[in-house]
Structures are given as C-alpha cells and as structure tokens.
Nucleic acid binder design. Structure first.
Lengths: 249, 249
DNA sequence: CGCACCGTTAATGTATACATTAAATGATCC
DNA sequence: GGATCATTTAATGTATACATTAACGGTGCG
C-alpha cells in the first residue's frame, strides 16, 4: 500500500506514542492536571503495582480520603478505570479491583496477538527510519544484556519498551489505545509470573527476526514472526497459570 | 491499605453478546437505569443518528437541560463517550462530537479487519451449534432479500447483525467490546455513504463463504475469507470518501 | 490606529448537601 | 428455632452551591 500522506492530521483521539505506564489522557506538559486525572493516574498506579489488592472492595469515600479529594473526581476516575477493565463499580460495595482469571488472560492474549501482529505488518509495510530501527534494536540489546546480567526486571522493562515501540510506530491511534488497554489489564499477571516462568531466552531471536523483517520491508514475514511470538508467550503464560492452580490474580 | 473483602469470583467484564446499537453497560432487565446510563444511551443515540452534528460544540448545561438532569450525570456520560472516541471534551467549550476523517476511517478498518478476522478464526476453530449457523445464514438470507427488494436500510441492518453474530460467537468479551467501539465510531460514515457506494452484491458471496468455512471447521480459510471481505469494504469506503472530497463527517 | 493589559464573565471543576436505595439488623410470629 | 418482614442505616446517586479559570471585550497607552 502506498504510504501516501493523507489529507491532514487525524482530528481523532488523544495521541500517545510510546507511553510506558500510567498516562491516560491529557498531554499539557506544564499545566497542573485536573483532580480526576490525578486520581486516575494514582489509582491506576496503585492497581498496577498491586497496592490495591485484586478482589478488594474500596469505598469511594475511602479513596477520596486516600487521595485528599472529594468523591466527585474519584467517581470520574473510576468510570475511566471501569471502562478500561481494571475495576468494577458495584452499587453499594464500592469499587473492586478486578482479578484476572485464566480465561481473561486467554482473551487478552488472543486480541493482543492479533493487534500486535497487525502493528508488525503495518510497520514493515511503511518501513522505519534508521533511528527508529535503532531504537528497536537497542531495546533488544537491552533485553539481551539484562538476561546476561540476570536482571529480570530490566528485561521486562526493555521488553515492554520494544513492544511499545512497535505498536507506536504503527501510527494507528486506535490500535495503540487498544493494545495499551489489554497490556495494562494483564500487567499484574506478567509481573507476578516474571520469576516463575522459564527464562525468556527464545524471545530475543524472535525480536531480532521481527526487526529483520521490518528492515527488509517484508510485511507478511513480520506479521507471521510476531504473531508466533505473541502466541507462544500467551500460551506459555496460560499454561503457567493453570499449573499454579491459582484461579485469579 | 484499606483492604476489604476477599478474592472471590472472577467475573471478567460486562458481557454483551450481540447487542445491536446503544447499550454500554448494565444489564438489569427490570431495574430503572441510572441517570448517567440514560444520559449515555440518549447522547450516544443522538450522536449515531446525527441529531448532534459532528463538529458541533454543546455545553454541559445545555445537555443537562435537553435530558432533564443536572450536569453531574451528564459529565459521567461524557467521560464514557469520550473514552469511546465519540466526543471530545474541551475545557471551556463544552463537548464536541468528533468528526470522522478519512485517516480515522483507515485506522478503524485496519483494526476492525484484524479483529473480525480473528473472530472468524476463533469461531471456525470452536465450531458453532446448528442454531447459531442458522442464525448467521438467516442474516445472509435477509441481506439477499433486502438487496432484491432494493431496501438498503434493511440490508445494512442484516449486515450489521451478521457481523455482530460472528463477533459475539467468538465469546471473547474484550474482542467484542473493541469491535463495538470501532463499529460505533464509524457508524455515521457507513450510514451516510450507504446510498453513495456501489450496491453490496459481492458481500453476500463473501458471507456465504465465511459461513461455509465455519461449518467446515476450517479456521484459516475463515480467517482469510473474512479478512479479505473487511479489507475490501474498508478500501472501498476510504476510496469513496476520497472521491467525495469531504474531509470529515 | 493597534496592541497590550486588565477586569468581567461564562463555563467548568470541585465540594458538599440532600435523596434514594439496597443491605443489614432485629423483632415478631409461626 | 427459624424465617419473614419492617426498620434502620450506610453508601451511593444526584443536584446544587461555590471556586477557579480561561476567554472576551473594553480601555488606555504608545
């Protein structure tokens, strides 16, 4: 497909190229963020960091006290978190951090695989500037280094960066948002299983193969390689969860 | 940490098998819906029906008067609509119904194609009960009948039903939600171009081929057939929009 | 005549008061 | 003793009052 510059910028949604963790909306760098935005950021951070235990009910009032605001901004933050699938709002019981079931992980990796494979195809079709390719390669190098140094957290960060770069380079804002949503939903499980899973050694050759396919401008190879990659890790995670015999996280 | 309650069930998200248009959340059949839910439903309906013109700014106060509620439920509804990519909230100008650009349509059909093709693969892998296959075939029959009767609106409804059935049968709630989001985002454009596009005659053989692949339990064929189908219609729509030389809808 | 500054104001952001309602409790009756 | 129903109550749902702030227009100065 010709990468013709379309008419203009998309007046569509918020854009957020490779944001790492909690961002949500808003982009004003200097402006003091609104209370709902701050509440959203902090709550999301607490959920992802497991400071708010999955399954736990917390009342709006308590959340307000925790963050030093009234219930109004809390409610608005909760609505967003609910729509992102991180919490559930139950009429008289407060909000509940949603546990992730095995079945949920299956669902998540199913869509994640399809979406990221699509991103790989798009990126390989468009081609990348050399500094973009370099950024992806750097991420792979960092993963390799982290593995050698036996630093699993550093590996996870670099891996996350690699995938975020790939998806971000697709330029499709809807794709980017959707991937972020499911990545966030499954973040806790990945984190908690990081030290229980086999060392991610095979990952790296997958990543290098993807970069090569992109460099070679071979969309179908990029698609296939990356789909396989995500499918494998998804299946590994689901199997791991089954073995752990823990129903939810 | 104010941890209350224990890890109990593992209900993922809201489920909504084949809901046709506006639903959002909540499922209580008899219960009177909350004001935010009602506001959300009505506003979404008005947006999709083009009663709220794309690009138009409307103040929260005005929306409240329109729906007979205060700003509080309106705000909560707007947050959801914003997150679904239907409106934009601008600090002092009210909310704005987002116009759909050509670029946005490209993005939407890119992810829609990937997600529905995934649904086709899943459904063909699992297989369908005979009444489910019958429901899909009925939708195809209805499309055919509508075409013969030259009733484009009926055709569009049946087409929508067919695709909703396919995605719903995948059983993947995240997939279902994501498809619904982009379908809603692009609804207005499809509606407005319904009479400008060539008669959707090829569609039907695609649909029949998909049903056949599902019946034959051939996931890769189902995937391929449906990806082609959505890709074609996406490209057709984008080309049509370009020809119309209208930048946004 | 134009530009910048400042005060006004309209709209939102936020807190709070009030209404509603489902859950919990206890008393009563079988 | 147990179950049902009325009552209480705690939490949310909703409206409203108040605070904040950016847009706008007018005025004065260069």
């Amino acid at each position: 497909m010709p990468t013709r510059g379309e008419t203009k910028e998309t007046p569509g949604q918020t854009e957020r190229p490779t944001a790492p963790a909690v961002t949500g909306r808003r982009r004003k760098p200097a402006a003091r963020l609104s209370q709902p935005q701050r509440a959203y950021d902090r709550l999301k951070q607490m959920i992802l960091d497991n400071e708010l235990q999955a399954g736990a009910y917390v009342l709006q009032e308590e959340l307000g006290v925790m963050l030093g605001v009234s219930r109004t901004p809390i409610r608005e933050a909760l609505i967003r978190l609910e729509q992102e699938g991180l919490v559930e709002i139950r009429p008289r019981h407060g909000m509940r951090v949603l546990p992730i079931s095995i079945e949920a992980m299956r669902e998540i990796y199913e869509v994640l695989t399809a979406l990221e494979a699509l991103a790989a195809r798009i990126v390989a079709t468009k081609g990348l500037a050399s500094h973009q390719l370099a950024a992806m390669e750097l991420a792979v190098d960092d993963m390799e280094g982290a593995l050698t140094a036996n630093d699993l957290d550093a590996w996870a960060r670099a891996d996350q960066r690699f995938h975020a770069l790939l998806v971000g380079y697709s330029g499709n804002s809807r794709l980017i948002d959707m991937v972020e949503t499911v990545i966030d939903q499954s973040y806790r499980v990945r984190r908690l299983t990081l030290r229980l899973r086999p060392k991610p050694v095979a990952s790296n050759s997958d990543h290098r193969a993807l970069v090569e396919a992109i460099r070679a401008r071979d969309p179908e190879r990029a698609y296939r390689v990356h789909e396989q990659h995500r499918r494998k890790s998804g299946e590994m995670l689901v199997e791991l969860l089954k073995k752990l015999e823990i129903k939810t996280f």
